[in-house]
């Protein structure tokens, strides 16, 4: 297979706070191939947003620090780049859109100013040429009105602003787009439009997308491959079809069960029991064990390794170890 666009290897990113060390990302492995849409799923606080900021080199340091691992992007280890080198990649090769379109644009500058700035930060072209490119990309994201360049963010709706954010991210045709909960703050109808737009840009430009979300519905619609995170680690990784049809990790099973279904008559919705453990006080053994209905003796003592359960399907659970052995597969290379 060709070299992946992004390859995170055993990334450990810890926050050193007064109250103790928070292991926000703790041995994460993740790859994104060219043109692929990968979903990164998990509850709030599981480390998915921190992962995205780590890729962008935007984790505040201190208190954050990458203690181990590497982030290989297009053959370069991002953890070894200095600020200036990182800046040259940011916005040009790796772009990012955020959850809050209402506040992600600077209220005091026009859309045009902010879009043109994105272009001219990386390319030495005239303002006029940049303006034309800005108009071009706005058309691609479905804003055909020229006047929008001279408008301020508060004059646009949330969906329009997110389109502008996408335009700003895509205008330099980055190799990787990180979308951190891009639709969470939008109406359902607008959500679908934004997702469609991202998908079509992904197809047109061949940009790889790392889609971070807690919404399994979004993932089902968009992603080729899905990575489920729990407490800074990958719990399960599989392609879309396998994950939804045949989830291997009890956490993923719980997440899938928590989706309300229309044809169900049950009065109460299913919820995974217990709470996400405090990051200062992680349980010994498997991090999910205290909430897991299948937890065994070993789960509370030892940390499970991630194992292959099927073709392109990995899970971090002792229940899967046996299956893995049956499959003759070993720890993931």
């Amino acid at each position: 297979m060709a070299q992946p666009v992004l390859e995170i290897k055993h990334l450990k990113l810890h926050f050193f706070t007064d109250k103790g060390v928070v292991r926000a990302v703790d041995g994460l492995d993740l790859t994104v191939q060219k043109g692929e849409i990968v979903g990164l799923v998990g509850e709030s606080g599981c480390g998915k947003s921190v992962t995205s900021l780590a890729i962008m080199g935007l984790v505040p340091k201190p208190p954050g620090k990458i203690v181990d691992g590497s982030i290989i992007f297009a053959g370069q280890d991002l953890t070894k780049l200095n600020n200036k080198q990182m800046r040259q990649l940011r916005g040009k090769e790796i772009a990012m859109i955020f959850q809050e379109p209402m506040t992600s644009l600077n209220p005091l500058f026009t859309i045009g100013n902010q879009l043109i700035e994105a272009i001219r930060t990386h390319e030495k072209i005239s303002k006029k040429a940049a303006r034309e490119r800005a108009l071009d990309i706005l058309k691609k994201v479905g804003i055909a009105r020229e006047g929008v360049l001279d408008e301020y963010p508060h004059q646009l709706s949330g969906g329009m602003r997110q389109r502008v954010m996408i335009a700003m991210a895509m205008v330099l045709r980055p190799r990787l787009l990180i979308a951190d909960e891009p639709t969470t703050a939008l109406d359902v109808t607008i959500q679908a439009q934004i997702l469609d737009l991202m998908k079509s840009l992904n197809e047109e430009f061949g940009t790889s997308v790392l889609l971070i979300t807690h919404d399994l519905g979004v993932v089902a619609e968009m992603c080729d491959r899905i990575i489920v995170m729990y407490e800074g680690q990958v719990a399960e990784e599989a392609d879309q079809r396998r994950l939804f049809k045949n989830p291997a990790h009890p956490y993923t099973q719980g997440l899938l069960k928590s989706i309300p279904k229309l044809d169900e008559q049950k009065k109460r919705l299913y919820a995974i029991p217990g709470q996400v453990p405090s990051p200062f006080n992680l349980p010994a053994g498997c991090r999910f064990a205290p909430r897991c209905e299948f937890a065994m003796e070993i789960c509370r003592k030892e940390e499970p390794e991630i194992v292959k359960v099927d073709e392109k399907h990995f899970s971090r659970c002792f229940l899967n170890q046996k299956e893995a052995i049956d499959h003759g597969a070993h720890e993931r290379s």
């Binding site: 940011r90 955020f98 600077n106 005091l108 930060t121």
Partner: peptide, 26 residues
């Protein structure tokens, strides 16, 4: 701490522009 400052950094702007353009005016 606002989101648009993070956006400005994500664009690859230097700290000088992030602070003197995007932050100071606000």
């Amino acid at each position: 701490r606002s989101d648009f400052v993070r956006t400005a950094r994500a664009k690859g702007l230097s700290e000088f522009w992030v602070v003197y353009k995007h932050t100071l005016k606000n």
